[in-house]
């Protein structure tokens, strides 16, 4: 088993794929904390469906580099969803449900009508649940993913204090002269980028898990924002790494394996939290 792994790791391409997987897991966990605390998790879910729809359109239009279409569409929807969500909560929720289900339906419809591929259900399945293997990423995708996720991580670190202020108490932050709309916009854009990136790793249906689980796990154990952020990043990286390695070895689908690892990790953290409360 170890031998198989070493053999795989000899290919530089496998190593790059692993690096990209870890980077994506890292930035989705960082933003995940804010997303969960700001009650934005539903936006993540809606966006992933929008990304799916955009992906289908890109396929129909035969755009060679899908990212060029999917990324801007998802970013714009993120901004729009945030705007509606801010004004009135309930209407915002309904808008998201409409957009996400609509995008899902249209995406499938388009794929069905215009698809030139012989393996339609396979295509749909891999867009929804991620490619069966992260190793099918092209070099260009790997480079793009790496650049965008590193950029997101740097932006997150630079804005960390401001993101905390806006997440904890938005009206105080606004009263103190912070540009809260700007920060919210930034958060929305980064989330959209991460979701598009994570689609390559786990597929559009499982993205929410990648974003939410590490944050929820970390919140079981730690009580300060910094500790929660750091530990959710660590947990997410560990889960992604073990998920990817297991999927290479056992030939399981990468996305579901990573999410399964996240679920196990969450269960362990719950147990740890309960034990800690007893002591």
């Amino acid at each position: 088993m170890i031998n198989t792994l070493i053999e795989y790791l000899r290919f530089p391409f496998v190593r790059y794929a692993i690096i990209v997987g870890v980077l994506i897991a890292l930035c989705s966990a960082l933003l995940g904390v804010t997303l969960v605390l700001k009650r934005f998790s539903f936006i993540g879910d809606g966006l992933s469906h929008v990304a799916f729809g955009a992906m289908a359109i890109a396929g129909v239009l035969n755009i060679s580099n899908e990212m060029l279409l999917v990324l801007p569409v998802t970013v714009v929807s993120a901004v729009l969803l945030l705007k509606t969500g801010n004004n009135t909560r309930i209407k915002g929720d309904a808008a998201i449900a409409m957009i996400s289900v609509g995008a899902l339906a249209f995406g499938y419809l388009l794929m069905n009508i215009f698809s030139t591929s012989s393996n339609l259900s396979g295509d749909v399945c891999s867009t929804l649940f991620g490619s069966t293997s992260i190793l099918t990423l092209t070099t260009r995708e790997v480079v793009l993913c790496a650049v965008l996720s590193i950029a997101s991580i740097i932006i997150f670190i630079l804005f960390y204090n401001r993101i905390f202020a806006v997440t904890f108490d938005e009206s105080f932050a606004k009263a103190a002269g912070l540009n809260t709309e700007g920060i919210n916009l930034l958060i929305a854009v980064i989330i959209a980028v991460i979701i598009v990136l994570a689609m390559n790793l786990v597929g559009s249906l499982l993205i929410s898990a990648l974003v939410i689980f590490p944050a929820l796990s970390a919140m079981r154990i730690f009580k300060s924002f910094k500790k929660v952020t750091i530990s959710s990043a660590v947990l997410s990286v560990v889960c992604a790494l073990s998920g990817i390695l297991v999927s290479i070895l056992a030939g399981t689908p990468t996305g579901s394996t990573i999410v399964a690892a996240d679920v196990v990790c969450f269960a362990l953290c719950c147990a740890a939290g309960v034990l800690r409360g007893k002591i």
């Binding site: 605390l37 204090n161 905390f164 202020a165 105080f172 300060s224 924002f225 910094k226 500790k227 929660v228």
Partner: peptide, 15 residues
């Protein structure tokens, strides 16, 4: 909400 007292007080310095 995971936030320590120190983090919250420090966030007052944001401006």
């Amino acid at each position: 909400f995971p936030a320590s007292v120190k983090e919250i007080v420090l966030s007052g310095c944001q401006g």
